[in-house]
Design a protein around this nucleic acid. Sequence first.
DNA 1: GACTGATAAGAGCATATACCCATATATTTA
DNA 2: TAAATATATGGGTATATGCTCTTATCAGTC
Lengths: 153, 153
Amino acid sequence: MLLANQPLRVDECNCNAMRRASRQITRFYDAHLEPTGLRITQFLTLAVLDEVGSAAINALAERLDIERTAMGKMAGFLERDGLIKIRPSPTDGRSRLIELTEKGRRLHAEAAPLWREAQRQFEQLNGAKNVTELRRGLRKMVVGSLATSSSED
Amino acid sequence: MLLANQPLRVDECNCNAMRRASRQITRFYDAHLEPTGLRITQFLTLAVLDEVGSAAINALAERLDIERTAMGKMAGFLERDGLIKIRPSPTDGRSRLIELTEKGRRLHAEAAPLWREAQRQFEQLNGAKNVTELRRGLRKMVVGSLATSSSED
DNA sequence: GACTGATAAGAGCATATACCCATATATTTA
DNA sequence: TAAATATATGGGTATATGCTCTTATCAGTC
């Protein structure tokens, strides 16, 4: 019962450890992508579009596990910068399809090797084994239904 | 060399895995803290202040590894809500000391068991062993000097 | 004491994220 | 077929984060 009176161990906060690491690695990858002016999230969006050709906002959001309204806003920035074009879906009047412009394709092609270098360096710094384990640990992390409700409208 | 022409494996992006997990766990902890109206970052700031009593913006930022200007802004919100008070440092005219108000102390005390519950549930969902390993993996992650330059003005 | 370099903090600008509420379209049900 | 329900998207609001540039104060050196 003495535990109740002890100060919180901020260092033991799982969420803090995660957010902290996330900020660090984001800065790392963003710095690598900096010559293209892209942030990692933007780059990944371009990458998904490059892979699937064309996708609706929600599909993109699901693929990258980003909140859909956030994805919609980011799509706006990418369109503003001429990297994507957005058009209504021919089969669903509610839906909008996003695809890369030629400019977006080129920028993606320019950014891809930079991303690969970031991946390579990250592995070099941490060891391939550690990175694989870390990614596996992240992937299998479970948060239950409490925090996933936001993914469903 | 065929690798150069293959689509990016978004699923293999370390940064994406990390950000994704960070978003998930943030939602999880935020949901637990929701009755207090605090977000996890705000709560952790209150917790550090509860622990050390009084701290300058930069010290807080360092402790939580948050960019100092971001910390300054968040301190503004906490002050606006009456949870902290900010006063000039008696020993350094450039510095401002932050400490909890009585209201902040109470809210922290209310939020602490919610945070503990989030910790407990997270461990229950993932297994204590997995959580410890995950936290260790996050803590020992290295990003080199490229992405840490932002911590130095 | 004057000057130089370092440091504390913040305003500005921009992206990222999440939730709430609303509108419009599609699907299902009665 | 009409009504009810589900779904796609976005505006609004708010916090989080990071970089750049700026101002003011402190510390060290001469």
